[in-house]
Every structure is written in structure tokens, then in C-alpha cells.
């Protein structure tokens, strides 16, 4: 019995030494997904991925932070908040995400025509420049331009439900407007500030009568690796620990012999 226990203990300890390496990361295989509720007349929703609730109670104009999902195909279901189990999903869609990429999954259009639009987001910032794109998620609104008030359009002719490519802009403050392609202002965006090394998505949401813009930040200038912040001058060398532990082990073997021999003699 004792032997069984001690071998079990040894097994657990050995496992403890090696297990972390075995179970360690596969986070390279993850994708990032955020959810945007852009359907002006839809109720608050719960979002389920593969049957698990990932977002609860998101109302119109709510955008979530990025969540990690394993790369591959997932079933995304959207329910009116609190109705899973009682009602059918308002949308159910299969979405495939790739490792290392970031996506926005937007519920768009009116409740009647609700659809899920998945777009890939940039994770790459440009040094010294801001990166911006525009999404037109206002059902029933005409094609729009986005640019300085009265000035030349930076983004021209974006139609529902289109998202433009990213464009590099000088960092700074802009008096922008969203206007119809014939020049009627829909949204005043005076004092919009974009910073160097940051990546933005400006999603126009709402209705033609009450449009507005959500300016989300997609990414920022980031290093690919952590800084190397030590030369090892104060490090305990790992081999020291090994030697010391081995010495203790040998001592214990010796002590064990002594103890157990005495006992069997007695």
C-alpha cells in the first residue's frame, strides 16, 4: 500500500514537472473576433459561438472587445437577449476564422433582413501614420463620401453594406463629415483625432434619419517580441538547482537505507 502511494506520488510529481510543457500554448492557433450590433431596429442580443454564450445583452451600437477563438469553422448564433431555448436564433451562420487574424462580425441591416457580415481587420499599424477605414452599415441610406467638411473626399462612394480598405492618414485632428455623394451632410465629425501608429474603423450605423459613427480602434503599433531586459548577472543558474536537488536526493537514499535496514533488523 505504502509502495503504491509513494509511486503514485512520484508519478504525480513527475507529471508536475513535465505537464506544463505538454499542455502549454497553442495560442498561435487563435483568431480574434469582435462583435458589432449595427441593426438599428433589432433588440438587444446574446451571441453564442458553438453553443456557448460569448456576448450577452449587446444592444444596438454595442461593440465588444476582441475575443479569442480557435482557428477553424464556428457556428455563430444570435438570439434576442435571454430567449435562447424559447425562440429560434435570429441569425445562425457558419464562420471560418484563420489563425493570427482579426475579424469584426457585424449584425447589420434591419431586423427583417438581418444578416451577419464578417470582415477582416488589420492588425498592422503604420509607423508615424494613422490607418483608417470606413464602413457603411446604415440600411436605406444612399452611398456616402467621407472627407473634410466641404473638401475632397478621403473615402468616396461607400455603399451599404460596404467597408472600405484602410487608408493611411497623417495623424492629427480632422473636421470630417459623412455626406451623400451629391454633397448633403449626413453626419458631422468635427474634431476627429487620429493618432500615429493606431488603426481605426469608423462604422456608420443607425438609420438615414439618425445616422452616427462608431470610431473603433482595431490595433496599435506593437513590437513582435518582448524586450530583452536582462543579462543574467543575478540569475541562479538552473544547473545549480539540479545539482543541489540531486545531492539532497542522494542523501535521502542514504538515509533511507539506514532507516529501513535498522527497521528490518529490529
Amino acid at each position: 500500500m505504502k509502495k503504491l502511494l509513494s509511486s503514485l506520488a512520484a508519478f504525480v510529481l513527475v507529471l508536475g514537472v513535465f505537464a506544463p510543457a505538454v499542455f502549454a500554448d497553442n495560442h498561435e492557433e487563435m483568431a480574434m473576433v469582435r462583435v458589432l450590433h449595427a441593426s438599428p431596429d433589432a433588440p438587444a442580443v446574446d451571441v453564442y459561438v458553438d453553443g456557448n454564450a460569448v456576448v450577452e445583452g449587446a444592444e444596438f451600437k454595442a461593440a465588444t472587445d476582441y475575443m479569442e477563438l480557435p482557428a477553424g469553422e464556428h457556428t455563430v448564433e444570435i438570439y434576442a437577449a435571454g430567449t435562447k431555448g424559447e425562440q429560434d436564433a435570429v441569425i445562425s451562420a457558419d464562420v471560418t476564422v484563420e489563425a493570427g487574424k482579426a475579424y469584426t462580425a457585424a449584425a447589420i441591416d434591419t431586423l427583417e433582413n438581418l444578416q451577419l457580415k464578417a470582415i477582416e481587420d488589420s492588425k498592422e499599424a503604420t509607423e508615424g501614420m494613422a490607418k483608417v477605414r470606413v464602413g457603411h452599415f446604415i440600411p436605406g441610406a444612399p452611398a456616402v463620401d467621407v472627407g473634410p467638411i466641404g473638401g475632397e473626399a478621403l473615402f468616396a462612394g461607400a455603399e451599404f453594406p460596404m467597408v472600405t480598405d484602410y487608408k493611411e492618414l497623417e495623424p492629427g485632428s480632422y473636421d470630417l463629415e459623412v455626406r451623400t455623394t451629391d454633397g448633403t451632410q449626413l453626419i458631422d465629425l468635427s474634431g476627429t483625432t487620429v493618432e500615429a501608429g493606431k488603426v481605426y474603423s469608423a462604422f456608420a450605423v443607425g438609420t438615414a434619419d439618425s445616422p452616427e459613427v462608431l470610431l473603433l480602434q482595431d490595433s496599435a503599433a506593437m513590437p513582435s517580441e518582448m524586450p530583452e531586459t536582462g543579462f543574467g548577472g543575478t540569475a541562479d543558474s538552473g544547473s545549480n538547482a539540479m545539482m543541489l536537488a540531486a545531492a539532497f536526493g542522494v542523501l535521502a537514499v542514504g538515509a533511507g537505507f539506514f532507516v529501513f535496514r535498522k527497521r528490518s533488523e529490529a
Binding site: 509502495k3 506520488a9 512520484a10 506544463p20 538547482a241 539540479m242 536537488a245 539532497f248 536526493g249
Partner: peptide
């Protein structure tokens, strides 16, 4: 006589190595 001491020594080695090295790293 052999099994117990050796098991004990092994346990002590593992245990003290775990304690001596700088915390679990993963």
C-alpha cells in the same frame, strides 16, 4: 530495502528541484 530508499531519494530530488528552481516557468 532498496525500493523504499530509492523511491524516497527520487521524491526528495524531484521535490527539492521543484522548490529550488525559480518557480514553474510555463
Amino acid at each position: 530495502r532498496f525500493v523504499y530508499p530509492i523511491t524516497l531519494g527520487f521524491l526528495v530530488f524531484i521535490l527539492s528541484f521543484q522548490l529550488l528552481k525559480d518557480e514553474p516557468s510555463e
